[in-house]
Nucleic acid binder design. Structure first.
Length: 570
RNA sequence: UGUCCCAUGGUGUAAUUGGCAACACGUCUGAUUUUGGUUCAGAAGAGUCCAGGUUCGAGCCCUGGUGGGACAACCA
């Protein structure tokens, strides 16, 4: 099933420290040469670009070593989880181009086994039921620099613990009344080893197991065992789980203790890497959820969101995201990636794929005074100079056309080679025109109309004229132009932006101009489009048809602007 | 007053078992171009946090600093 994973990804995958670790394991002939990874999201939100990095990493490891990668929902906390998220996660992983090994797995499928193992720990004197409140337990935990103190319930008999745990499971107690804790070391320098909770009581229906359970395992008591059950060899997670690794291994030791059959199975190994940070971007699910709930964005798939679904709606392609994940690399040090890298990845991909199209985003009328009134001629325009198989199309040209307002200046500076009084430019695919005059609204200062004459000898493709014309403008015939709603996106967060600002509210950095809606004049060939169709608006940027677009109302999302060295010079 | 992790151009990653620091993004030139896009050619920019040590030789090994990060949810 994993054979076709990654087929379009860059073949030269850089080696990283995880490859080196796996190579080492392989050299020692661990796990019989098998490599099985997994992507284990909790279904409590939509996937974002950070998850995409992890997905690409796990699946590309599987593909590099001829192994597989599981998709497993870590659904151990019913209060935060929902099937909506389960569905969106599967959709996003598939969209990114990956196929997991077999069916999707669920931690909840292992609840019975986990329960049995918890009982085993109790029987071995390695776990006990604690009657204290969350506050009391927290107080006894100590601090990173001071040891904790032992619970008064720590030395209950095995029989009593067994009985209590059984009754916890049976629903005899209210939430918070009792928990099951591992008996490790309240003085450990690692806080996670100070008798961590294994099970807590939650009286809430689970999206898969319904009301079967009212006790649920904590992450630490679940994750390593889930990996073990599935035969995962390398459990790749992010750096913040590093301090959990001793516990991960401790629980595995306990369940394997005295069981030769289990000991003969593959033992998973946790390896951590640095999570993705992008400047101007928040990646925390909690904050993203807040943006959705407060209506600051239109939903999880709002094109300004760093979610996979948002990026998809924005016009990003799976290839571009995979390529990005590859370029970002994998390491154990925290860093912040410049969004410019992400943007360059989508430009690179769309440059070869997206057909060029004329669209005037901020139109001003240009009238060709010596062009016959009422005359319309069709001109041939190449669809994509990067890909001649995309052919060409016919565009209506007439006496009045729209051009981009910023393509005309009353007093153009020397380096500006677009239109100005007396200047000549080419209307791409059409004729060369020379500006003879223009009409300006004296009170607003706005240019209302531009008057030009055209040279019939300069029709596109005509070889008779070899004049050098530097300025080439995109245009749309006024008579044939189609209106379209254009959604111009900017960064959701302002320059000072968030990720590192722990003490400030990310909402303080919201950019009020992150979405600007305008009406553009686009060429008539664009009338028939489907959601997610992508185009390069000539000289403007890459745009993607929105899912809400209809034949009556065209809506485009701007994926990313084109590079523009002129505006940079200004 | 703890434990663990990390430290390479502006940013992110590389650097075979120690052998004159490479690639990408970004920046800047120039050329081509019916997109100031693309493409092509080229440039600037780090001597690898600091100080010692081992070695013929250290970004890689050792020691000690410094700086940054993680860890005290009945979250994952």
């Amino acid at each position: 099933m994993s054979k076709d994973n990654h087929e379009n990804a860059p073949e030269a995958v850089k080696t990283n420290f995880i490859h080196q670790e796996i190579d080492k394991d392989l050299a020692e002939n661990k796990n019989g040469g098998v490599v099985l990874t997994r992507f284990p999201p909790e279904p409590n939100g939509y996937l974002h670009i950070g998850h995409a990095k992890s997905i690409c990493l796990n699946f590309s490891l599987a593909q590099k070593y001829g192994g597989g990668c599981n998709l497993r929902f870590d659904d151990t906390n019913p209060v935060k989880e929902d099937v909506e998220y389960v569905d969106s996660i599967q959709e996003d992983v598939k969209w990114l181009g990956f196929n997991w090994e077999g069916e999707a797995r669920y931690a909840s499928d292992y609840f019975d086994q986990l329960y049995l193992w918890a009982v085993k720990l109790i029987k071995n004197g390695k776990a006990y039921v604690d009657d204290q409140s969350a506050e009391q337990i927290a107080a006894q935990k100590g601090t990173p620099t001071e040891p904790g103190t032992e619970s008064p319930f720590r030395n209950r008999t095995v029989e009593e613990n067994l009985d209590l745990f059984e009754r916890m499971k049976a629903g005899e107690f209210a939430a918070g009344e009792k928990v099951l804790r591992a008996k490790i070391d309240m003085a450990s320098s690692n806080m996670h080893m100070r008798d961590p909770l294994m099970y807590r009581i939650i009286h809430k229906d689970h999206h898969r197991t319904g009301d079967k359970w009212c006790i649920y395992p904590m992450y630490d008591f679940a994750h390593g065992q889930e990996d073990f059950i599935e035969g995962v060899t390398h459990s790749i997670c992010t750096l913040e789980f590093e301090v959990h690794r001793p516990l991960y291994n401790w629980f595995l030791d306990q369940i394997l203790d005295g069981d030769e059959e289990l000991q003969s199975k593959v033992r998973p190994r946790q390896i951590e890497f640095a999570r993705l940070n992008l400047n101007y971007t928040v990646m925390s699910k909690r904050k993203l959820l807040e943006l959705v709930q407060k209506g600051i964005v239109a939903g999880w798939d709002d094109p300004r969101m760093p979610t996979v679904s948002g990026l998809r709606r924005r016009g990003y392609t799976p290839e571009s995201i995979r390529n990005f994940a590859d370029k970002v690399g994998v390491a154990r040090r925290d860093g912040v990636i410049d969004v410019a890298l992400l943007e360059s990845c989508i430009r690179e991909d769309l440059n070869k794929k997206a057909p060029r199209v004329n669209a005037v985003v901020d139109p001003v009328k240009l009238i060709i005074t010596n062009y016959p009134e009422g005359k319309v001629e069709m001109v041939d325009v190449i669809n994509n100079p990067e890909d001649e198989t995309q052919g060409s199309r016919q565009l209506p040209f007439s006496r009045e056309v729209y051009i981009e307002r910023e393509d005309f200046m009353e007093e153009p500076p020397k380096k500006f080679f677009r239109l100005g009084p007396g200047r000549e430019v080419r209307l791409k695919g059409g004729y060369a025109v020379t500006c003879t005059d223009y009409k300006k609204n004296e009170s607003t200062g706005e240019i209302e109309e531009i008057y030009c004459t055209y040279d019939p000898e300069t029709k596109s493709g005509a070889t008779t004229v070899d004049r050098k014309i530097k300025g080439i403008l995109h245009w749309v015939s006024v008579e044939h132009a189609v209106d379209a709603e254009i959604r111009m996106y900017d960064r959701l967060y302002n320059h000072e932006a968030p990720s590192s600002q722990k003490d400030t509210d990310h909402l303080d950095f919201i950019n009020p101009e992150s979405l600007k809606i305008i009406t553009a004049k686009i060429e008539p060939s664009l009338k028939e489009v489907k959601p997610l169709d992508k185009f390069q608006f000539q000289r403007v940027g890459y745009f993607c048809v929105d899912k809400d677009s209809t034949s009556d109302k065209l809506i485009f999302n701007r994926t990313v602007a084109l590079k523009d060295s002129w505006s940079k010079k200004k």
